[in-house]
Amino acid sequence: MKRSNQPVNRRHPRRPVKPPVQAAPATRAERSSLRRRLRAYGDIHLQTARETLQRLVRLRHVSLLTSVVIGLTLALPAGLYVLADNVQTLLPDWRADAQLSVFFKPGTDLERARDRLREWERRPELIRAELITPDDALAQMRQLPGFDAAIAALGENPLPPVVVLWPKLDRELQPLVADLQRVAEVDRVQLDREWLERLLALGVLVGRLARLVGILFAVAVLVVVGNTIRMEVQNRRSEIEIIKLVGGTDRFIQRPFLYAGIWYGLSGALLAWFIVQVSVVVMSGPVGRLAALYHSEARLHGLDFGQFVFLILAGVGLGGMGAYWAVRGQIRAIEPP
């Protein structure tokens, strides 16, 4: 029955093969009609998006200006975010180098210093401890240019033994420092980390600032897009009236304006991304030299892929929202004269 229905049908016209044959095209037609409608709907959106883009390209002196304003507006919070992100990701790296230098009183016996070292090595908050003997320290100093003669003039080695401690990360160091200072032989404890803590706090501050500026500038993008689209609606008032006359719904009329907003947001976000990446390249030279001063290999980084996607989505979302906010009531209010 499956193979070649038609000849069988012709030869035996009374055979009831017709009902299934009829039913099949009906459901297929239904399904294809739904698919056709979905495709038509998608086509309309694609076509609107394309036509809107073509229009913006045609009016480039106006649309470029809007895109640039949005780009600059988005670039500032994005740039601040990158700055905060860099500070926060670079610091743990530098923090690993944080050391405590414990200076013994001059003339402290080397053996006593070794005892203390063994004692401290057992403390849980430390990763490692190392003793620098006065001889080692003197040898190191000799290698520095110009110091040779000075040291020779001293005659006796004036340097005390020093123990360098590497504390574990994310530990409160104040109790340890206090403990160490109570030890009789210890002259001074020097914490090399305070500037890092300050920088970290500054990084958190900049991060918070980026978020605040981000919110304010998101509102600015809404206003810029909204205002541009509002003027665009005014310019195309007669066209909107004609479309209403021949039965265009508000939804149909507002669609190209929403796409215009989305294009503005997208182009602005791309521009902001470009500005940030270029700034990172421009800044990476000085930052690299600064990092070198702290014996760090740290490199400045720009926006990663996830952050790039977020920036684009933010631009598109803000552009669409700004346009929607502008056209919603306005198009409704236009009536054919």
Binding site: A40, Y41, D43, E239, I242, I243, V246, G247, T249
Partner: peptide, 22 residues
């Protein structure tokens, strides 16, 4: 009440486009 920046064809097609015909 024609759209001055569209062709004759596009003007006449407008009601069909509005009605969502592909």
């Amino acid at each position: 009440r024609l759209l001055a920046d569209r062709t004759v064809f596009e003007n006449v097609a407008l009601p069909l486009i509005i009605a969502g015909r592909p």
